[in-house]
């Protein structure tokens, strides 16, 4: 029996919460995309745990989908948490621009005022655009985290799983 789509949502929510919260906390967010990947791995671990309890199988595609979902949830949580932390991130961006000014020969005029763009208040257009783009990037990274999670927690040889089923070699590779 294969995993149902509903079985993927809760692990994805938990993985997304990890990714979203840690990606938003000052200092922790410096560790690049690690938290989003970790969210995907956690989601796949929870999926494998659920599968073993239910004596069901799960496949690499389940890991990919759960990871991608965890990325989307993580993006939403990150953006929501960042709203009250806007002041901190504006200072972060300001420090980045000042650091950039040390290395760049010429900065465009008025660059000191760029961080003031964010202080003009909440803008629904930029919020939803950020949400869209961040969701895409987080979903991509979360999906890769799901693949990593599958390689770590793949079903053992005793359980029925996709790796034991004869594969159609032409399926995954489009060829020329």
């Amino acid at each position: 029996m294969a995993m149902k789509e509903n079985d993927l949502v809760r692990p994805a929510l938990i993985g997304g919460a990890l990714a979203g919260i840690l990606s938003s906390i000052p200092f922790f967010h410096c560790l690049c995309c690690l938290w989003v990947l970790a969210g995907g791995v956690l989601a796949t671990y929870l999926l494998s745990d659920r599968a073993s309890k239910q004596s069901t199988s799960y496949k690499m595609s389940d890991g990919l989908l759960t990871g991608a979902l965890s990325g989307v949830f993580g993006a939403i949580i990150t953006l929501i948490i960042r709203i009250p932390l806007t002041g901190y991130y504006l200072n972060w961006n300001k420090r980045f621009l000042e650091s950039l000014a040390r290395f760049a020969d010429q900065m465009p005029p008025g660059w000191e005022n760029w961080t003031e763009i964010g202080q003009q208040g909440w803008n629904p257009f930029t919020f939803f655009l950020s949400l869209l783009v961040t969701s895409i990037v987080f979903a991509f990274l979360g999906a890769l985290g799901g693949l990593i999670g599958f390689s770590l927690f793949k079903p053992s040889a005793g359980t029925k799983n996709e790796t034991q089923t004869p594969q159609n070699p032409g399926d995954s590779q489009p060829g020329l």
């Binding site: 560790l31 980045f96 621009l97 290395f103 760029w114 950020s130 961040t134």
Partner: peptide
């Protein structure tokens, strides 16, 4: 277009420390 440039840098700040060095 410095505003859009700053916005793109901001978007990638969620997944990268963006340290200039």
């Amino acid at each position: 277009n410095p505003a859009w440039s700053a916005f793109i840098y901001h978007l990638f700040s969620s997944v990268c420390h963006q340290k200039v060095e």
